[in-house]
Amino acid sequence: MLPPEPGRVPRTEEELLTRVRMLAGYTIGQLAERLGRKVPEETRRAKGFFGQLLEPVLGATASSRSTPDFERLGVEMKTVPMSKVGVPLESTYVCTVGGAGLETRGDLDWGTSRVRHKLCRVLWVPIQGDPTIPLADRRIGAAVLWTPDENEEQLLRRDFDELMEYVRLGRWQELTGHLGAVLQVRPKGDSGGAQAWGVDDEGRRAKIPARGFYLRPAFTGGAIRNALNRSRQTPSA
């Protein structure tokens, strides 16, 4: 059976879920062939490829903009390479950190931050991540919709507040990937040494290495498990 063709913009979450579940079991190669795309040979070049492949099929609208992938529904899509036993194999990128006009964008406060905005409703799409499987043969898994529960949001917020303390004071050197239990800040994987404007530790504008917020794999794995458990209790899911 061929994977579904590119679809229109979904109007409801149920429509989105139905469509994404139709992709479960297909390989990346099958989907790419359907869309006339070439699968990269190297994993390193595949950063973002899975998402770019799924977006047109599912009717995502935002592409690489900072708004949610499914703007109308307020849903962000995240593809997650996972092991066969359900453990995410890498951290999950959320959004960039730092940059000009940081204060004006309200990024310093959790309530108005892009991190919260991005994570308030997420469509997790597991992809087989076993490095022994060629990229084209990796299968798409069972997708779930997730909203952080009270406990998860508290964990995220606690880390966010701690990390933003470093950002606020321009302590970039100390802001390493070791900080944060569930959320971390580290150089962006695909940045290639890119720099962005930020504030240095003297309070002056300075070029700093581009960094991003990432969810730690253990948190993502727990979130997906929780969402799967919840979806099992819902007959329609």
């Binding site: 479960a24 079991g25 996972m82 066969k84 359900g86 597991p126 087989q128 299968r139 798409i140 898994g141 069972a142 997906i224 799967l228 979806s231 099992r232």
Partner: peptide
């Protein structure tokens, strides 16, 4: 009681 597979298998 069933367990949903993370990666449905053809």
């Amino acid at each position: 009681p069933a367990q949903q597979l993370l990666f449905p298998e053809p």
